[in-house]
Amino acid sequence: MRPTTAVVRPLTTRYTPRHFVGRGVRLSPRASNPSPHARGILTLKDHVYFARSTAEGSGRIGGVVKSFGDSPLEFNMDMPKVAGGKGEGMNPEQLFGMGYATCFLGSLQLMAARAGKKELAEKAKVHTKVFLGHPENPDLEGLGLRVEVGVEGIDDDDIIAAAHDFCVYSRALTQGCEVNVVKV
């Protein structure tokens, strides 16, 4: 069986150099928006870890998701009340936001340590907001994501920018990632 390859890309197209506004890093859209297919996809030459998860049941509305490994997890899933669900479980956006916040915090701490400023990140906090909504492009069906990452406790824009460049979640959303969908 041959895998079908899908590409995960951010909802907005290409981003370029950062400019600093107030207390954080903002990404500015390019002046000319080339085709979103013009950029390459980040691929892996090897892997150092993999996580395995299974979703079953009714999916987003009353389903169950399990993660296996050193510390197995299991969550009941549900749509948020505001989206028509009962709000009696987790939703994928919450789990994504939690993973992103954790990864970005680790990246901040590593980049601060590499800059010889380890103490800057010791009490840092990372806040994420994951927005689920309809794409502006009327030709796209379904929903899309927008993510805001807030960094609390670090004012060094260079460390924040380095963390954004290093964070796995940031890379996946800004550079794309390889996704293979296969029948099992």
Results as ranks from 00 to 15, higher is better:
M1H: 15
A6C: 14
V7W: 11
V8A: 15
V8P: 10
R9S: 08
P10M: 10
P10H: 12
P10R: 09
R14A: 00
Y15Q: 11
P17W: 00
G22N: 13
G22V: 07
G22Y: 05
R26Q: 12
L27Y: 10
S28A: 09
P29I: 04
P29Q: 09
R30M: 11
R30C: 03
A31Q: 13
S32C: 10
P34W: 10
P36N: 10
P36S: 10
P36R: 09
H37S: 15
A38K: 11
R39G: 03
G40I: 03
L42Q: 14
L42M: 14
L42D: 12
L44S: 14
H47D: 11
H47W: 12
H47K: 15
Y49W: 14
A51Y: 10
A51D: 11
A51W: 09
T54W: 00
E56M: 12
E56N: 15
G57D: 02
S58Q: 13
S58H: 15
S58W: 09
R60F: 02
R60C: 02
I61C: 10
G63S: 07
K66I: 01
S67L: 04
F68G: 04
G69E: 08
G69Y: 08
D70R: 14
S71V: 07
S71E: 12
S71D: 12
L73C: 08
L73Q: 07
E74V: 04
N76H: 13
M77L: 15
M77W: 07
D78I: 00
D78A: 05
D78H: 05
M79L: 14
M79S: 03
M79W: 01
P80W: 01
P80A: 12
K81D: 01
K86W: 04
G87H: 03
E88D: 15
E88Y: 03
G89A: 10
G89L: 08
M90E: 04
N91W: 08
P92M: 07
Q94I: 01
F96N: 02
G97N: 01
G99L: 05
G99D: 04
G99P: 08
G99T: 02
Y100W: 14
Y100K: 06
A101F: 03
S107H: 02
L110M: 10
M111C: 12
A112Q: 09
A113P: 05
A115G: 07
A115L: 10
A115M: 08
K117W: 04
K117L: 10
L120I: 07
A121M: 01
K123P: 01
A124G: 07
K125T: 12
H127F: 05
V130Q: 04
L132S: 06
G133Y: 07
N137G: 11
N137Q: 14
D139I: 09
G144C: 11
G144Q: 04
R146S: 05
V147D: 08
E148K: 12
V149Q: 03
V149E: 06
G150I: 05
I154H: 05
D155G: 15
D155H: 15
I160K: 07
I160P: 01
A162K: 12
A162I: 08
H164E: 08
H164T: 11
D165T: 07
F166V: 06
C167L: 05
S170Y: 03
R171Y: 09
T174K: 03
C177K: 06
C177L: 13
V179S: 12
N180I: 06
V182T: 13
K183S: 11
V184E: 14
